[in-house]
Amino acid sequence: MIARVNFLPDERSHEATRLLPYVMAVMVYLSALALMGSMVLHRSFSEWTEALSNRLTIQITTPDPALREAETADVTRLLQQTPGIDFIHRLNKVEIENLLEPWLGEGNVTSDLPLPVMIDVTVSRTMAVNLDALRGMMAGISENIHLDDHQQWLGRFVKLMDAVEYTALGVLSLVVMATVCIVIFGTKAGMAENRETISIMHHLGAEDSMIARAFQRRFMRYGLKGGAIGLVLAFITLVSLMSLSRAMMAGLVRLPDMPVAEGAVLLVIPLLAALLCMVTARITVMRGLNRMV
């Protein structure tokens, strides 16, 4: 019954640190959002990049329909002769209309709207295609032929992706710093509140590490408790955000599902939070005690 005496008073009576779990919940919530958000975006970016990296799009915008068809035949022949090109697909009217629909609205693509010829080209992933040469030869056929290898797009994507990830990292480190500060503050308040108890324990011959352990345990529990609350809130937020955006963006871009494997990593956050609290509390207590007699 008194196998293990908890010499610190019950947690509920702790004015100084009672609210700490809720602060921890906010911290874990923010870090989970930052992490999860960057994971989802990372996923999307890599899927888009992947999808675009071996694709070329050729547009032939010659206004005259007969000439346009002749040029299309020339380009097709040229592509067929070029080594490293796996697949050529000329988009039909319906497909082009589908592409335009999100921008123009359903049924707004009238028959007199001049549509360019669009050719979707899939390039072999194993063999490099000399794009400059291809461009040169196409320019020879007509100046109305545009070859888009999406590099500009991809370049911007990569930059955006980096920016998003650095931001997430920044948010994370700020949250960690804030957490450490709060735990230090809370530990000091807790020590001040229990000054007499600590002093009595010292006089009875308690080691500093034993006193530190009592605080460590308490702050670890705060971290776990707050972490669990924060994580649940973060999951709710993410799931609702995902379904909202999926409903809104349907058809425009395909949003990836919640990355399950990476998502599991989030479960570790409360544990890390608990560990962070524990270590911070220990260091703070040991330092504080060192200043006592």
């Binding site: 019954m1 008194i2 196998a3 293990r4 005496v5 010499f7 008073p9 019950d10 009576s13 108890t197 009595i200 324990m201 009875l204 011959g205 308690a206 034993m210």
Partner: peptide, 21 residues
């Protein structure tokens, strides 16, 4: 220690030197 019972208070020194329940 105000939050411990008389028994627990008296037990502290034994507990500190590793005594068992």
């Amino acid at each position: 220690l105000d939050h411990l019972t008389a028994v627990e208070n008296v037990a502290l020194p034994l507990w500190l030197s590793g005594g068992k329940g």
